[in-house]
Design a protein around this nucleic acid. Sequence first.
DNA 1: CTGAAAGCGCTTACAG
DNA 2: CTGAAAGCGCTTACAG
Lengths: 337, 337
Amino acid sequence: MSLTLEDIAQLSSVSRSTVSRVINGDANVREETRRRVLEVIQRNNYQPNLAARQLAAGHTKVIGLVIPAGVGTIFSDPYFAQFTQGLSDACSEKEYSIMLWLASPEYERRMIRRILGSSLVDGIVVLSTLVDDPLVSALHESQMPFILIGSHPSLEVNSVDVDNIEGARLATRHLLSTSPSKIATITGPQNMMVGRERYQGFAQAVTENGRKLEDTLAVEGDFTEMGGYTAMKSLLAAQPQAVFAASDLMATGAMRAIREAGLRIPADIAIAGHDDMPIASQTNPALTTVRQPLGQMGLLTIETLIELIHHPGQPTRRIVLKPELIIRASCGSSPAN
Amino acid sequence: MSLTLEDIAQLSSVSRSTVSRVINGDANVREETRRRVLEVIQRNNYQPNLAARQLAAGHTKVIGLVIPAGVGTIFSDPYFAQFTQGLSDACSEKEYSIMLWLASPEYERRMIRRILGSSLVDGIVVLSTLVDDPLVSALHESQMPFILIGSHPSLEVNSVDVDNIEGARLATRHLLSTSPSKIATITGPQNMMVGRERYQGFAQAVTENGRKLEDTLAVEGDFTEMGGYTAMKSLLAAQPQAVFAASDLMATGAMRAIREAGLRIPADIAIAGHDDMPIASQTNPALTTVRQPLGQMGLLTIETLIELIHHPGQPTRRIVLKPELIIRASCGSSPAN
DNA sequence: CTGAAAGCGCTTACAG
DNA sequence: CTGAAAGCGCTTACAG
């Protein structure tokens, strides 16, 4: 039904080798020939069959995006949507397509095998959240080029990440600038690297400030609104004056708990979040938070992955982007806006 | 590097035709032979090369998911994440993979061509929101099996949808049961089918109730929190006692505006939303809303699409699922919870 | 700069 | 029930 290379070759009176060359931008084609072939291609709206190309050339132009999704409603965190959007934009630009796998735990093992064995993709982006994800180890042992979004505690893998420690430190420092008598944090799950790192950043800022970490309060949340709410409730008894929540979603929940307790933000309790999701600027008061350059991350990820695909065996790269503190009204040290 | 059909054939001392048959579940294989081959496959963890299979058989086992994303931050609406999750689960079950295309307008035309021409997928799911999406027309003119999530004003296409009119009607009826003197609605964009349909449902409920539609207030929102907020502000002057917001995100924004105006929910203004996203149960008061069976939609979509792929030329099917009213405290006619 | 030919790893009539 | 052979639509040395 659709045209093949062969058809285009006949229509332009050249061999299919030549057509293939012009399609792939090979320099060894006379300018006039190239123009003629290109014209035929355009006129007939020809699209090469990707399966055939892959089989012959050993590569497709698609990359796999793996997101561990089974765990609760984490996938509905706007973070994933935003990152995916960034990645997708970058792929369009580079003429790659994205194969999406939302890994629910039950299918995980089977899925790894399918991904690796079926040679459907040239490379993989894993958005791994767990500290010691078997997916990452499996990928690491395979020959498949891949990039981990985040970090891994022990393995040397190519990764793109935002500096979570720095992000948490920025937010915590800002909270400390109002000299609260007691500061607390609602952490992310400690079996996730982001959860751990953001707690580390919090701890560093506290220590830098000349305080003892022991005098500090920490409750573990699960990155959901409800988790933030519950955590804040249990924190309330200790009467903190400042709280760093490791995600905006949790900050939102915490604000709800604070409001229900009849306390004012920031007068009674100052609060800061992390991620700068759309809602952050709409809460009341607007939420001080940390912005991650998600669009840039997507582009860097794809560029690095393509580099890896074309030139394997390079030294492992770890790219860490700087987060940015966004000051709003919830910490009290800025004009309410 | 990885094994091929040929390797498996040699290892099990049969021809590759036979191996292919056992892999594809062809009945014409002696039971003993099948077992032996299967054993070799398992032991070597063999995965067929999908590109080769596609080239030979004319089909891959992947379906494309197209989501128009460029328009604002719509993609970060939890609705998309939830639907995608449902679709992904269904695909895992059926051993299909998902190719994801987030269509930003600039790339749209080019993308349609790539999708249709490259024969990368067996079928397509389009999550089209616009009333008259060129993507849908293009798909409709092609031979590619596809399912539209939503509805189309004029084209006869295979579609899976939730009854948006009914959903809006349920919510509006519930609001009317408290006999407000004046009822208003914050609609979705009227260039989207859901926006139009939910307004229709609102209008039907109002008319049913013996009221005149003209006595009613309607402001168009854009499905974001901010849009709901702005719309509610402009509605406030007219002092409605009840508001139906066409999405929970907009309802959240509207609640913020109401609160800022110093009014109480539901005492002064009752409010209902649509979608039952995670936040709906966490707002204060909890939001009455309409739940869509997204998981079921995903499964039905995949099943129907697979049916379409295997048996083309069937009469066009339109599957419409029933939404469910979730009564919470924001309408005042239930115990606060 | 260009073409003829082999080959990528499968599936599928066709014969037996 | 099984195998030999052709073919899917490309790419890529190899020769010229």
